[in-house]
Write a protein that binds this DNA or RNA. Structure first.
Length: 296
DNA sequence: ATGGTGGTCCTACCA
């Protein structure tokens, strides 16, 4: 086990950090990537390529589409990712957190009284709680009465919002630093989609979804770590549909994948990047990796 | 206005 190193890491942080300024200062920089991989078994070679090129310390995957006993653990272990939280099921959904920095407590959560595998939580060094979330896509019709998938999406966001609200109200947990990443399946800003007007009634950019995502963000006290670096006037996408002849030429993208951090971590943010190039890789996911780096 | 592609696992369902 990596317990010894983990304890050392936490200890070395604790010396430098004051309780009111809990972040990664004093530790090595941490590079974190989130990627909706759309089948981790089919695309394990592309994950390997991403790792070799970008060297993330922590990798959060969504849509792994793999039961836990078939998850390619050996491949990740061989690449140095000794700590893994794998939470998958047959055929659909599935999230995983792979880490080169040892993590502490791990949890998985279920919402909307379903067995879906959409939420994994680990504690990173410095007491930072990392949430990896895969929000339901919501189907085609943006009406919760007519479309149960859309109702599920809204309920999922509402339940998460209520949970983060309760957590932050908790005296002992309220000030804890958090990172939330994942495929949130909502593009909140006008510049997070290729055409605000044309997508106003398209699931992922409807006002009701944008409002619910905003409520979730406020409930956790989260800052959008990507928009921290990129002004809202600038277009930014992390997903391009497979149903386009030429994704790059038409560039009809949406920013569905997000990295949020709580305010005490904002000062540690060193970089944010969306790896658009990977959308051009052979047989890749329709989502691209989104990365942040937190300073040591 | 419609259908366009790609994943899982074999038939329809999901994105």
């Amino acid at each position: 086990m990596s317990r010894g190193f983990s304890r050392y890491w936490l200890h070395s942080c604790a010396i430098i950090l004051s309780p009111l300024d809990t972040n990664f200062r004093g530790c090595a920089p941490v590079r974190l990537i989130t990627w909706n991989i759309n089948s981790v078994r089919l695309r394990i070679d592309l994950v390997r390529r991403l790792i070799e090129e970008q060297q993330p310390d922590v990798l959060c995957l969504q849509e792994t589409k793999t039961p836990d006993d078939l998850f390619p653990r050996a491949e990740f272990a061989a690449l140095g990712y000794r700590d893994m939280l794998v939470h998958g099921m047959k055929g659909y959904n599935g999230v995983a957190i792979l880490s080169r920095v040892p993590f502490g407590a791990t949890t998985t959560r279920a919402w909307c009284a379903r067995a879906d595998c959409r939420h994994a939580v680990v504690e990173l060094p410095g007491g930072v709680e990392l949430h990896n979330i895969y929000v339901p896509a919501g189907g085609d019709i943006p009406d919760p009465q007519a479309n149960p998938k859309f109702a599920h999406k809204l309920q999922f966001l509402d339940e998460l919002t209520a949970w983060f609200t309760a957590e932050r109200a908790h005296e002992r947990l309220g000030g804890r630093p958090m990172i939330a990443v994942g495929d949130l399946n909502v593009a909140p800003l006008e510049t997070d989609v290729w055409s605000h007007k044309q997508l106003l009634s398209v699931v992922s950019h409807t006002p009701v979804e944008v409002e619910r995502l905003g409520a979730l963000q406020r409930a956790g006290g989260f800052v959008d770590a990507i928009r921290h670096f990129v002004p809202p006037e600038q277009r930014l996408y992390s997903w391009w549909s497979y149903r386009n002849r030429d994704w790059a030429a038409s560039d009809r993208g949406r920013r569905l994948d997000h990295v949020w951090v709580t305010p005490s971590l904002v000062g540690s943010l060193a970089e944010a990047r969306i790896h658009r190039d990977s959308r051009g890789w052979d047989r890749t996911s329709d989502h691209v990796p989104v990365m942040i780096e937190l300073n040591g």
